[in-house]
Simulated scan of single mutants.
Amino acid sequence: MARVYATADQYEDYTGQAPPADIDHRLRAASSFLDAQVFRMCRYDVTDAGLPSNALVAAAFADATCAQALWGVEVGDTTGAAGVGWGNVKIGGVQLGRSVTSVSGADAPGRQVAPAVGDALRNPDLTPDLLQLGAVSTW
């Protein structure tokens, strides 16, 4: 079962806005995306459910998840699908072009880590004994 690091209430507190109708889906998707792109490369203590056991780390993960979900709302794309399928398009006098190597959607804004995620995870209260970014190890 996928871990979800934030709730609709946390999203509303983070953004100061009522959450969109599909917020549970967005928070699940943002959590899964951040697990794959960021959290898996961090070292932190976890509960039996795999969630951060420290309250400061859990709050930072919630903020990061809310930031990622908000990013998807703001850019209008959470999957990268909006960036797929065209190399060059011309409509009337307007011509848009994209490198042939970038039509997978992987470079679309919806597939980027939101800048505010880094802000949440670089909180000065998150000392190295609580959270280490980029600390992949095996025990």
Rank of each mutant, 00 (worst) to 15 (best):
L27D: 01
A49W: 02
V57K: 01
N54W: 00
G87R: 08
F39T: 02
Q37D: 06
A59S: 15
L126E: 01
T15D: 00
N88E: 12
G83F: 08
N123A: 14
K90Q: 14
G85K: 07
V73L: 12
T127Q: 13
L126A: 08
T15R: 00
L51P: 05
T47K: 08
A67Y: 02
E74S: 08
A49R: 14
D63S: 14
D63V: 01
Q112A: 15
D125V: 03
R98A: 11
T101A: 15
P128N: 04
L70F: 03
C42W: 04
D107R: 05
H25F: 15
A108E: 12
V117Q: 06
V89N: 08
N88C: 13
P109W: 04
Q132H: 01
R43A: 15
S99Q: 11
E74H: 09
E74A: 12
D24V: 09
L130K: 13
G83D: 09
S53G: 15
Q68V: 11
L130D: 08
D119Q: 12
T79K: 09
G76E: 08
D119H: 04
C42P: 11
L121E: 02
V117T: 08
G134L: 07
G118H: 13
L133D: 05
W139E: 13
A82F: 06
T78S: 10
A18V: 00
P128Y: 05
D13S: 09
K90D: 07
A116N: 07
S31V: 09
L70I: 01
D119N: 07
M41F: 14
N88S: 14
Q17C: 00
V113W: 04
Y14A: 07
G76S: 10
R40I: 07
D45I: 01
G134R: 05
Y44K: 03
V113I: 15
Q95H: 10
A8R: 03
A29T: 13
P128T: 05
V75W: 04
S32H: 03
A30Y: 00
P19N: 00
T138P: 00
V113P: 13
D24M: 02
A18K: 10
V100I: 10
A2V: 07
D129M: 04
T47I: 10
A67V: 09
A64S: 11
H25N: 12
A18Q: 07
D48P: 13
G92K: 02
A59T: 11
A49S: 15
L126T: 00
R26E: 06
D63I: 01
E74M: 14
A114V: 05
G97R: 09
V57H: 03
Q112S: 14
T7H: 02
A82D: 11
C42D: 10
V117A: 05
V57L: 10
A58K: 11
T78A: 11
V103L: 10
Y44P: 06
S53E: 11
V84P: 00
S53C: 12
Y5K: 06
V46G: 07
V84H: 02
M41Q: 13
A81I: 06
C42F: 06
S137W: 02
C66M: 07
A135K: 08
Q95V: 10
P115W: 05
R40Q: 14
